[in-house]
Design a protein around this nucleic acid. Structure first.
Length: 347
DNA sequence: AATGCGTGGCT
DNA sequence: TAGCCAAGCAT
């Protein structure tokens, strides 16, 4: 594996030469971003974060809202909140230096078993075993584990640990990631070019593609609602800050009705608009798929005067007007960018 | 232990 | 196309 890694490893922005230890700050930042997120999606965000906040002290000193705005579009926003919280904790409790043990790392916000092991191995050279989805898949195939996920997680973790070398555990972990990402893929694995095909029980039995087995997941429910895009005459759009926790926590939103199972009558929905105006239903709908539900929004739009006043149920203290040219830098999640784009397309 | 939590790219 | 799913964590 290590010889293969030395030759074939992917060159990624947060990686250093084989055998070297990487900067813990960069390892941590990349690992948080990579949680449930593809390398391709992470790369531009990683570059922007590192350019803007080159050190953990700089990140800890930043306002949370700036971090959330920079995270907008990457998803799973509790990661951004915990990233900021973790930076502050490392600066205040550890003088800006990450602890090097798995136990200490895992006490920090946003760092769980996987990330603690990854940082320990990659940044500190500990013989640790980060087990992510890639490693689970590779190990399930190497040992032909037929038990299905998530029940098999404990066993897969145990088996993975038996493979970790004493030296270069960080490179070994990253080799497993590369193997899982490029060769031992979920569908149509490239067993013919796999460096460990000779050691793979699943390949020997011709069942690599069937593993790991997974319990089928529950059907995704659908939720619906109305969203209200108010465009002020000076070109500003009305947005509102969401609650600090939960879905899209701390991010900005377009004011909307509650997202429910049933669509309220339009007349009733319009009574919950954030301000009195001549609301116009934008043709079509906005569909957005979250992890655990599918959302369909009907979008209303209104052009309002510069002195328009908000209704009290719009919670004016949480609202703000943002110039259209500044929207790109705002803490707007993708679903809200879709809504605004839908409302403003074709003038 | 099961559920809540985003997004975009792939097939 | 409509799922499937990616370098998980918190509760």
């Amino acid at each position: 594996m290590l010889a293969w890694y030395d030759e074939e490893r992917r060159d990624l922005p947060w990686r250093v030469a084989p055998g070297k230890r990487a900067d813990p700050y960069r390892v941590w930042l990349s690992e948080i971003m990579l949680q449930q997120t593809t390398v391709k999606a992470v790369i531009p965000f990683y570059a922007r974060f590192l350019a803007r906040w080159p050190t953990i002290k700089a990140l800890a000193a930043a306002p949370l809202d700036d971090v959330l705005a920079a995270w907008a579009g990457l998803g799973y926003y509790s990661r951004a909140r915990n990233l900021h919280k973790c930076a502050i904790a490392v600066v205040e409790d550890f003088g800006g230096k990450f602890p090097s043990t798995i136990a200490e790392l895992q006490k920090l916000p946003g760092i769980g078993p996987y990330t603690a092991n990854a940082i320990a191995a990659i940044a500190f050279g500990e013989s640790a075993t980060p087990v992510d989805g890639n490693v689970e898949r590779v190990v399930a195939r190497l040992f032909a584990v037929r038990q299905s996920l998530p029940a098999a997680k404990t066993e897969l973790k145990r088996l993975a640990a038996t493979l970790t070398p004493e030296r270069r555990a960080g490179d070994f972990a990253q080799a497993m990631m590369d193997l899982g990402a490029g060769i031992c893929t979920p569908r149509r694995p490239s067993c013919l070019v796999c460096p460990v095909q000779q050691d793979c029980a699943a390949a020997a039995h011709g069942i690599a593609e069937q593993l790991p087995m997974r319990l089928e997941r529950a059907e995704r429910p659908q939720r619906v609602g109305f969203a209200f895009v108010a465009l002020r005459e000076d070109g500003c759009v009305l947005v509102r800050k969401r609650a600090e926790a939960g879905l899209l926590g701390g991010m900005l939103e377009v004011p909307s009705t509650a997202w429910g199972d049933l669509l309220p009558p339009a007349k009733e929905a319009l009574r919950s608009a954030p301000l009195r105006a001549d609301w116009w239903a934008v043709p079509g709908t906005v569909v957005h798929v979250f992890t655990h539900f599918r959302l369909e929004l009907i979008v209303y739009r209104a052009l309002v005067p510069a002195d328009a006043t908000l209704t009290f149920w719009a919670e004016p203290e949480r609202c703000q007007w943002v110039a259209r040219r500044d929207l790109h830098a705002a803490a707007l999640p993708s679903v809200m960018r879709k809504v605004i784009g839908h409302a403003l397309k074709e003038n």
